[in-house]
């Protein structure tokens, strides 16, 4: 499903030779069309990435620099990390980052383990009630989280887990969509290999861990990345379940920072940069899986 993987390879040599630029079918692209395309691409680039850079630039401007000037000054005159130091003086931003990291890591582990096991059970194992189990996950996927969030909150209170990081993790700890993604991945594996292992005396666990699981690493990576991104970015649920400021995740902490120091744009800008930087690095390194996840998720969703 990956767009990047599926797209036909670009004719790189033609580019290197500074010859006419051609499309994927080897046809020449007219010069004016090429220019028009790049102009549009740069325009959209300014619209999509520009706001992030403006935020970065604001966060690097010192207290004496005018951030409201018109026409605007895009680059800080004297770049300084002063605002980042101020953020950590104002709110315990590194504790919040650590909380977010804990929640996201836990979410990755539970989703990978839980959905791989359940997906394997749905795809490969024969037992009574398998159809019902599949239906349970399909129904769960169709229920919008926002429509049950109050009941999730009261459930957490009943379990005594509200206002804890465990409570933040639990509802999304084994996503129904991830289970179904893993199920599909296992279904796409040829049955014969596992059959051979069975003949050789491998039990269920060995077949799962040694043969099936290593063959679906790509889908598992997609599950891991989306679990990380989802919980790092999540806002509504932690906002509802966490009330103690010392337990805040980064998104809730940022919301608090904005609510209390809305007029200090440099401070809020520095806070948002801290929150978004880790994901940008992750995205830059693992783009392939991000795109692949969109394709698989959309087909399922």
């Amino acid at each position: 499903m990956s767009v990047v993987e599926k797209a036909p390879p670009a004719p790189a040599p033609a580019v290197v030779h500074r010859g006419p630029v051609t499309d994927e079918h080897g046809r020449r692209i007219r010069v004016w069309e090429l220019v028009l395309r790049y102009v549009l691409l740069l325009f959209v680039l300014a619209l999509t990435v520009g706001p992030f850079l403006w935020q970065l630039s604001t966060s690097l401007k010192g207290p004496t620099e005018d951030i409201f000037s018109s026409p605007p000054s895009f680059l800080p005159a004297h770049p300084t990390l002063h605002n980042y130091a101020r953020v950590s003086d104002t709110i315990p931003v590194w504790d919040y980052a650590l909380n977010s990291l804990k929640v996201a890591t836990a979410n990755v582990v539970t989703n990978c383990v839980g959905s791989a096991l359940a997906g394997y059970a749905l795809a490969r194992l024969r037992y009574r009630g398998r159809r019902v189990a599949t239906l349970v996950f399909i129904l769960a996927m169709l229920v919008p989280a926002e429509s049950i969030i109050i009941a999730q909150f009261t459930t957490m209170r009943e379990l005594g887990l509200n206002n804890s990081l465990v409570g933040v993790v639990l509802p999304g700890s084994v996503g129904a969509m991830n289970v179904l993604l893993m199920r599909n991945a296992f279904l796409n594996l040829p049955f014969e290999i596992e059959e051979a292992a069975f003949v050789d005396g491998a039990n269920v666990w060995q077949r799962f861990a040694r043969i099936a699981l290593p063959s679906v690493k790509g889908t598992l990576a997609v599950v891991a990345i989306f679990a990380f991104m989802f919980s790092w970015d999540d806002f509504l649920w932690p906002l509802i379940v966490l009330s103690d400021p010392s337990k805040f995740t980064l998104t809730i902490g940022l919301n608090y920072l904005h609510g209390t120091f809305a007029n200090d744009e440099r401070l809020v800008a520095a806070g948002t940069v801290i929150a978004v930087a880790p994901l940008m690095v992750l995205f830059a390194c693992l783009q392939r899986y991000f795109f692949r996840g969109v394709g698989e998720g959309a087909v399922k969703g």
């Binding site: 096991l117 359940a118 394997y120 059970a121 194992l125 189990a133 349970v136 996950f137 084994v174 289970v179």
Partner: peptide, 9 residues
């Protein structure tokens, strides 16, 4: 195998 997922769901 299916229990963790089913319980959470």
């Amino acid at each position: 195998f299916a229990v963790p997922g089913l319980v959470v769901t």
